[in-house]
Structures are given as C-alpha cells and as structure tokens.
Design a protein around this nucleic acid. Structure first.
Lengths: 115, 115
DNA sequence: ATATTATATATCGATTATCTATATATGTCA
DNA sequence: TGACATATATAGATAATCGATATATAATAT
C-alpha cells in the first residue's frame, strides 16, 4: 500500500488533531502549545493554521463553537469528532511507517527484498 | 532556529543524497533502490525524480556523467559533491530535529518551557 | 515476427501545503 | 496615546509532488 502523498508536508493536521484529542482548544492556543511542546520547532503561522482548521471542519474531523472569556475577546474553540479520532489514529500509523522507512534508508541498512 | 520549511515535503532530496553518498547511481537505479530499502514506502515517480536530480545538479550538490553499459542504453550517473555531502549532513540533522519534535507532541509529553 | 513488459530519461500542467503579507478587532501596560 | 500581545481571517506567492505523456532500447513471451 502506498503512503498518503500528503503526509510528508501534511503532519501538521495530525499534530492539531492530537492536541484536540487531549482537550478543546482555540486556534491561537494551538499555535502556542505546538510551539512549546516542539521546543520552538513548529512555529505555525496564522496563514497556515486557520485555513487548515476550516478544512478540518469541512471534512467533519472537528467542530467549532464560540465562547466568551473574561478580559478577552470571544474565542473560537475546536472539538475533535469521532471521525477526527479515527483520522488521527490513521495518520499516526502512517507517520510511524514513514519515519521507519526514512530511517531505514538513512541507516544504509539491508534491503527488505532483493531486486 | 526555525526548521527549514521545505523539510516536511522535502525529505526526498535527503534520501537521494544519502544513496549517492554510498555510490554513484543513475536515476532509475535510485528509484528502485529507494523502493526496496523503504519496503515499498517510497515509490518515487519519474516526474518527481528527474526534475529533482536536475535541481540538485543546478545547486552543485551532484554532478552527472553518461556511461554506456552492455546490453542497455546509455545511463546517466550522478555523483555527490563536497557541497552535497555537507547538505546531506545538514538535512539529516534537521530530519532528526523534526522527528523528535513530532514525537514529543504525539507522546503528549510535558512542555520544554511553560507559557 | 510481433507484441508486451521492463528499463531509462524527460517535460508539462495540476494539485496541495505552507508562507508572506495584509486586514481587522480587543485587552494590557507604559 | 501608543505599543504590544492576543485572536481570527483571507489573498497571493512559492515550492514539492504527482499524473499524464513522450521517447527510446533491451528482454521476453506468444
């Protein structure tokens, strides 16, 4: 089975779904959490984040609701759906397959099958 | 330091350079070797491979030469340069940084620094 | 002999992911 | 009042990859 082509540039969706699998979050909060948890490796820009969240919502992987906060403007929270949980599991499996494949090539190891 | 943006979709160049760091190869051979070594995870298409090789050559990371073979058409071999070796080392470091960051997020671990 | 398959390189156009830049609005602090 | 962090959003540009197509040669099957 071939790897999903969008995986290589597409790990961001998986990371967002992972965060939402732990708790509901609003967009800005996801950016900050991702930056912290990745030791500043993932510095997601607003121009990447929001279109991606809208796309996930269109696909039915997340749903959103607005909630007022004290001393802050209204925030748009996202909640992961059953489909989203399933998608997260799939993406994590593909991620493992992908990294193992890359590492196998980088280690210069033997081939899985001869030519 | 932010991660190279091209890394996520850009691990292919690293893998090709890795193969060439072991021995000179021609394009088709790289596709086959990559497929075998990755357990059929990386099934690189010609439309991806050749433009990428031309790009690496333009960047001075590889050089090419044609060589005739018995019972086969002329093949175009690629050889990695000093700059290519350096680029490979850099890309491998970024790869490690990237995977560690993703795995840290996926493990739901603690943050590197508090908000 | 002829058709098919594998080898081998190449280009074009489409798709997709991400970024930069820009826009808007609110709350805090100096 | 002005600067800055928070918060969401869209438009346009760039880059990586793929699908489709094209060409040519060698080996194999019918």
């Amino acid at each position: 089975m071939p790897l999903d082509k969008s995986l290589q540039s597409g790990s961001t969706a998986m990371l967002l779904l992972k965060l939402l699998s732990e708790q509901d979050m609003y967009g800005y909060q996801m950016t900050e959490t991702l930056a912290r948890r990745s030791d500043r490796t993932f510095l997601l820009k607003a121009g990447t984040l929001y279109p991606l969240l809208h796309q996930l919502e269109t696909q039915g992987l997340v749903v959103s609701y607005e909630q007022a906060a004290e001393g802050a403007r209204v925030r748009k929270y996202y909640h992961i759906t059953k489909d989203g949980q399933r998608a997260l599991t799939d993406k994590q499996q593909e991620w493992n397959r992908f990294t193992h494949a890359v590492n196998h090539v980088l280690e210069g190891g033997e081939c899985y099958a001869k030519a």
